[in-house]
């Protein structure tokens, strides 16, 4: 029996956390895993912090991830990644989008905090999404980086994307996902592991 894999996806309302969570969890079901997903709907949709927890494996009980046990934290920006930092297990991996946090509340105040985590991948999600023609696709770049980190092949996910993403957005989104996968591969090669 393989152990459960636990993933936290964190961002703010309107940035597509729920959309990629849906693609990810449906793809995992298609691959034959037991899957549980936890989301909170309601006031969280009004621009505030939004997160989802996804767990998959042979048999999953809790939809909630225990502190210190998440295998991956996917931060759609640096602030939301850090918010969930204590959920990451020691050998877990942070995937952080280098979002443009230009507001004075955030700018230059939190970047240094990532050195405490052993495995961090920085993803130029926002910049890549812009290159692919739609700045709102940073969520799919992040999903691509996660899928690559999980060791999945692109083909399964292409069909899942085609099933769950509206036709007019498919081309951009799939391209962003592919770019995210590539980004994670490159990052992995030049990664520094921080000694704790």
């Amino acid at each position: 029996m393989t152990a459960a894999t636990s993933i936290i996806l964190a961002g703010v309302g309107g940035k597509g956390v729920i959309t990629v969570t849906n693609v990810l969890s449906q793809g995992l079901v298609a691959l034959g895993y037991d899957v549980k997903v936890s989301e909170v709907h309601g006031m969280s949709q009004r621009g505030g912090s939004v997160h989802a927890q996804v767990r998959f494996g042979d048999k999953i009980y809790s939809p909630l991830i225990e502190m210190g046990t998440a295998d991956y934290i996917v931060g759609f920006d640096q602030i939301e990644a850090l918010r969930w930092g204590s959920f990451l297990k020691q050998e877990g991996r942070m995937l952080v989008n280098l979002a443009e946090l230009n507001e004075d509340t955030y700018k230059g105040k939190y970047e240094d905090n990532f050195s405490r985590y052993k495995h961090v991948t920085y993803v130029e999600g926002t910049a890549i999404a812009k290159e692919t023609g739609n700045v709102r696709n940073e969520n799919f770049v992040m999903l691509g980086a996660l899928l690559q980190a999980l060791g999945f092949e692109f083909d399964v996910w292409k069909s899942t994307m085609e099933k769950y993403i509206k036709k007019q957005y498919q081309e951009d989104s799939i391209l962003s996902l592919l770019r995210g996968m590539r980004e994670q591969r490159v990052a992995r090669e030049k990664e520094t592991v921080y000694e704790l």
Partner: peptide
Amino acid sequence: EEFDCYEGVQVPPRPPRLC
């Protein structure tokens, strides 16, 4: 018992807001 955790980082709250 509890798992070892990374020490948390205090980040500003982002509560829901009017659109």
